[in-house]
Amino acid sequence: MGRSEGGWYFAAVGDVHGQMHAMVRLLEGWSAKTGKPLAFVLQVGDFEPHRHDADLATMDAPAKYKQLGDFPAYHRRHARFPWPVYFIGGNHEPYGFLDAQAPRGFEVTPGCHYLGRVGQVELRGLRVAGLSGIHREAAFRTARPSLKDSKDVPHKAFAYFNEEDVDRALALQDVDVLLLHDWPSGLIAAEDAGAFEHQRRSVSHDTVGNEYARMLVESLQPRLVLCGHMHRAYRAAIPHSSGQVSDVACLASVRQGPECFGVFHVSTDGITEVTHLR
């Protein structure tokens, strides 16, 4: 599956927010149009794998956005993903479910894998790592609350990564693809700055992203970085003093249509995106 003469293909998807059926339709549509099968799909957080209302209750989000979504159909085996899916956590996940099961990752339903707070997996020779959550400086140097105390603390407290998570991620080795929910800081080119003024989660382009995500990219020097969170598509590159360059693909949300995904070709020449900003 996913094999092609001269290499193979995988897809990356932005925030799904429980719209798994739409994600499947978009990617299957791309494969049908191009005749290229996908080996697997990587997802950059806010996947929202809610099995039932009890999971939904553990997610941090305004009430109007708390919707069960499509995942119950996959959990009950009424639907299946056409390819293996690997996802990290965003800031809108049922962490009461994910952390209680296995904070270091597990298979949430057949063919669908949570990489954990920090995780790494090798897929067809490609080493994929991920850091779940978003940054909040006030929470960075403290331990996350125990799930036993979850009724007494805001759900938001479980949506942040902390210093221990980043230290674990920094210890990873030979990372080819890095999954982040939030963007690395300093990503936006000067000529694009105006497009990020007073937009969603960005008072200005200087406030987009966080320094710890940037530090991970600079330390691990992956060939490809994948991000979500901002609900907009953007492409950039981060050069390193070693001469290595990390290509960065920021992805829109599934509700926004085809800009939510990118497809990448893997060959002996490296990893190359075959989709482009639309």
Rank of each mutant, 00 (worst) to 15 (best):
M1I: 13
R3C: 15
E5I: 10
G6F: 06
W8Y: 15
F10Q: 02
A11I: 03
V16L: 13
G18M: 07
Q19P: 04
M20G: 02
H21K: 08
V24W: 05
L27Y: 03
L27M: 13
E28H: 12
G29T: 09
A32V: 14
T34S: 09
P37L: 10
V41G: 08
V41N: 06
V41P: 01
D46C: 01
P49D: 05
P49L: 06
R51K: 11
R51L: 03
H52S: 11
A54T: 09
D55S: 06
T58Y: 03
M59N: 05
K66N: 04
Q67Y: 09
Q67T: 15
Q67A: 14
F71L: 07
P72T: 12
R76N: 10
H78L: 14
A79H: 06
F81T: 07
Y86T: 09
G89R: 00
G89V: 01
G90W: 00
N91H: 09
N91F: 02
H92I: 02
P94L: 00
P94E: 01
G96N: 01
G96H: 09
A102L: 03
R104L: 09
G105A: 05
V108W: 03
C112N: 06
Y114G: 01
G119Q: 04
V121Y: 07
V121H: 04
A129Q: 02
A129W: 02
S132C: 01
S132Y: 00
G133F: 02
H135R: 11
A138V: 08
A139K: 04
F140S: 00
T142F: 08
P145L: 07
S146Y: 07
L147Q: 12
K148H: 15
D149Q: 13
S150H: 09
P154V: 10
H155L: 06
A159E: 04
F161L: 05
D165Y: 00
R168I: 03
A169G: 04
D174E: 12
V175C: 08
D176G: 12
V177D: 01
L179V: 12
D192V: 15
A193W: 12
F196Y: 12
F196D: 07
E197L: 10
V203A: 14
S204F: 15
D206Q: 11
T207S: 12
G209P: 05
G209W: 01
Y212E: 07
R214F: 09
V217Q: 11
S219K: 14
Q221T: 15
P222M: 10
P222Y: 10
P222H: 12
P222N: 06
V225A: 11
V225G: 06
V225E: 03
V225Q: 08
L226N: 00
L226D: 01
C227F: 11
R232C: 08
A233D: 08
R235W: 14
P239D: 10
S246C: 04
L251D: 05
P258T: 15
C260R: 02
D269Q: 11
G270M: 04
G270I: 04
V274F: 15
T275I: 12
H276S: 12
